[in-house]
Design a protein around this nucleic acid. Structure first.
Lengths: 361, 361
DNA sequence: TTCTTTTTCCAAAACGTTTTGGTAGATTAT
DNA sequence: ATAATCTACCAAAACGTTTTGGAAAAAGAA
C-alpha cells in the first residue's frame, strides 16, 4: 500500500528562458531573432538559431496562442448522425485540407456533434479561442450554420453552394458544367438516347449534375426524353449494377453517363452480362471521383471521363479560409477547374475552353 | 488610398476578470467556484455560475492549457500517401472517437504527413504541447512509430495489434475469433465445402480472419482443402461480385463466408444470376461492418452475421488513451466483444460464451 | 471567556510567449 | 565638435487562467 509514485513522464521542455540563460541574451532578443525581426544582428540571429536547434527548442504553442490571440487552428465540425459522415468524397477533401494547412502552419481540430449541438459547438470553439475559423460542407437551403456564422462574423468557408453563396467564401466543383459538357460531347457524337445514372438527388451536387445534363439537351436541340435519368438511392452499394441492368432493357439506349466511378465499375459487370459491348454498340462516360479505392485504370481506353480533383477542393478551402481569417478582401467563391478525357472519335471541339481536354488516339 | 481600417472582427471575450469585477470577488474565487472546489460557499458558487451564464463566459482554453501544461487534445496523424486513408472503417472508428472524446472534454487534432514526416510530427506536437497523446492505427510489423512513442514515453493507443502489443495499449476487434466462430457454426451445420471470400491479406486483419476460419477446420476435423480462400485485392470495388462468380463455378460449394458486407451485397447479385438460391442450396454468412453506406437489411433473414461495432472501437480507443494520459495502471489491450446473428437452423450451441448470440426462428 | 477548528475568501506567482517603448552606443551629417 | 540618425539590444507588461500559501471571520470546544 503506497502512494502513487512519480509518473515519470514529466517532460521538461526547453523554453525561451533556457535559451536566454544559455546565450546571455534577453528573451526579447531570442524571440525576435527566431521570428525574423530586423532589429537583431545577423551574427546574433545565427547564434540563436543554432542554439535553438542544438537544445531542441520548440515554442510552446499555447503560450503563443494566448499572447497572440490566434489559435492557428481551423475547426471542422460534422453532424455525427449524418449519413454524410462516411462519404468517401469527404475523406479526399479532408486529405487535401490536411496537406494544405501545413503550408500555413495551421492545425485542424475536428469535432462531431448532434445536429442540435453544432451551433453551440461553433460558438464555444470560437470563444474558447480553440479555433480561428471553420470549414463546413454540404450546405442545405437556409442552412442554420451559415446563418449563425455570418451573423457572428466568424471566418468560414463552405464546400458547396446554396442560395446566398455570394455572402460567403465557398469552393465547389462545377457539377453543372462537368455534366453539361460530357452530355454535349455524347450528343455531338450522334447519340440520341442516353441513360444518365445519377446519385441520390437528395444531394444538391446530384441535382446540379442532372440539370447540367439536361441543359446539354436543350443546347443541342434534343427533346427532354432523349435523356433517361436513373437515380440511385442511398445507401447505394451496387446501385450501378442494378440501374445499368434496368437501362439496358431499353434497346434504343446507345450511351450511358455515370455520376460516379463506383457506379461505372459496377455497371461494367452488368454490361458484360448483356449483349452489348463497351466502345462498340455502347458509349460510356463517367465522372471519375478519383477515390483511392476505386480503380478505373482497366477502363481508361474504353470510356470517357470528367474529373475534378477533390484534393484540390481541400487545398482551395484552406486558401479561402486563410483569406477570411486574415480578413483580406471580400468573400469569394472558387470553382475547381475540370478536366476531361475523351475517347478517340468524340468531338473534342465541343468542350468549352475552361476545361483541360485530353483525347486518346 | 487609405490604410487598412479596423477589421471589425475583434471579439472581446468576457474573461474571469470581468466576472471578478462584476461580482466583486477575487479571480481566485471565481476560478475555484467554477471548477468545483469545496472552499467556496454554496451561495457564492451559485452567484458565480449565474453570472458566468449571463455574461456568456467561456474560459480561454489556451490560458488553461498554458497554466495546466495539458492540452486537453489528442492527436491523430496519418500518412497521407496511404491507401488506408480512404478506408471506410477509418471513418467509423473516427466517428466513435469523436463522440467519446466529448465525455472527457477533449479535442481531436488531426494531421497528415509524408511517411517520413510522421515521427517528427509526433515529436513536434508533444513538444508544442498541442497534444497529450496519440491514436494510431494499422500497425505494421516493427512499426517505427511505435518504437518512437514507446521510447519517448508518450501516451498512445493503437487500433490493431502487432508483435509487441503487450508493451502498449491497444484496441482491436477479435478477427480471429469472429471468423473461427462463424466457420465453426457452418461446419457444425454440415457444410463440407465452404468458400471464404476475404479481403486483401496485405492487411493483418484479413490474415487474422483467414487464420480464424482455418482454425475452425482443424477444430472440427475437416481437411484444409474444405475451405477455399478467395482474396480480393485492393482497390476492391466489385470484387465481391467477381469472386462469388468464381466460387460458384465449384458445384461442391454449399456455403460462402464473406469478410465484408460490401462484398456480401455484391455477391448477392452474382448468386441471383446463378442457379443457386440463398438459404436453400447455399448458406451465406458475412461480417457486417455496419458501415453507413451499406444496407444489409434486405438480407437480415436470409443470411447470418457477425458484428463488431467500429464505433465501439473508437470509444474504447479514447478510454484507453485517457488511462495512458492519466498514467493509470499498466497499458492493457481491449478486445471489442463480438455479436453473432444466426439463421434458424444453425447450431447456436457452437458459439463460445464471449459472443452475444441471437437466432432468428 | 479563550482557544481551536472550520469556513470562506484572496494576493501573488506562475505558465511561456509576444510586443511595447524604450536606451546605449555607433555611425553619419552638419 | 555637435546634432541627428541608425543599429542592436532589453525590461516590463500583457495574454487569461490555475494554484499556492495564507488570513480573516465564523463556528465549535474547552
Amino acid at each position: 500500500m503506497h502512494d502513487d509514485g512519480p509518473t515519470g513522464r514529466e517532460r521538461d521542455q526547453v523554453t525561451i528562458k533556457d535559451l536566454s540563460a544559455e546565450l546571455d541574451l534577453s528573451i526579447t532578443t531570442i524571440s525576435r531573432a527566431l521570428n525574423g525581426y530586423s532589429d537583431v544582428s545577423a551574427k546574433t540571429r545565427e547564434r540563436v538559431q543554432q542554439a535553438a536547434r542544438d537544445m531542441g527548442y520548440t515554442p510552446n504553442r499555447n503560450a503563443q496562442r494566448l499572447v497572440t490571440q490566434k489559435s492557428h487552428s481551423i475547426g471542422w465540425i460534422k453532424g455525427d448522425g449524418s449519413q454524410h459522415f462516411v462519404d468517401p468524397h469527404f475523406v479526399e477533401v479532408f486529405a487535401g485540407v490536411l496537406r494544405e494547412v501545413k503550408n500555413y502552419d495551421y492545425d485542424v481540430v475536428f469535432a462531431s456533434g448532434d445536429e442540435k449541438e453544432i451551433i453551440p459547438l461553433y460558438e464555444r470553439y470560437v470563444k474558447d479561442q480553440s479555433v480561428d475559423g471553420f470549414i463546413l460542407e454540404l450546405p442545405q437551403p437556409n442552412d442554420a450554420r451559415i446563418d449563425y456564422l455570418l451573423d457572428a462574423d466568424i471566418p468560414f468557408v463552405v464546400h458547396g453552394r446554396e442560395a446566398r453563396s455570394d455572402k460567403y467564401a465557398w469552393v465547389d466543383i462545377d457539377n453543372f458544367g462537368l455534366f453539361e459538357t460530357l452530355t454535349t460531347v455524347l450528343i455531338g457524337a450522334g447519340h440520341k438516347h442516353i441513360a444518365f445514372i445519377n446519385g441520390d438527388e437528395h444531394y444538391s451536387f446530384a441535382v446540379e449534375r442532372r440539370r447540367g445534363a439536361q441543359a446539354a439537351l436543350e443546347k443541342m436541340n434534343l427533346a427532354p426524353d432523349s435523356l433517361t435519368i436513373y437515380n440511385a438511392v442511398h445507401p447505394m452499394v451496387h446501385a450501378g449494377f442494378q440501374l445499368t441492368q434496368k437501362a439496358l432493357e431499353d434497346p434504343t439506349i446507345t450511351a450511358i453517363i455515370y455520376s460516379s466511378a463506383v457506379m461505372a465499375v459496377e455497371g461494367q459487370a452488368a454490361i458484360e452480362g448483356s449483349s452489348r459491348t463497351i466502345g462498340e454498340d455502347l458509349e460510356i462516360a463517367t465522372m471519375d471521383d478519383e477515390l483511392r479505392h476505386v480503380d478505373v485504370s482497366h477502363l481508361e481506353d474504353k470510356i470517357s471521363f470528367v474529373r475534378a480533383p477533390l484534393n484540390d477542393s481541400g487545398h482551395a478551402l484552406v486558401r479561402q479560409l486563410m483569406q477570411r481569417i486574415q480578413n483580406k478582401g471580400a468573400p469569394s467563391g472558387e470553382l475547381i477547374p475540370g478536366r476531361i478525357k475523351l475517347r478517340p472519335n468524340l468531338p473534342a471541339h465541343l468542350v468549352p475552353d475552361c476545361f483541360e481536354v485530353e483525347q486518346a488516339k
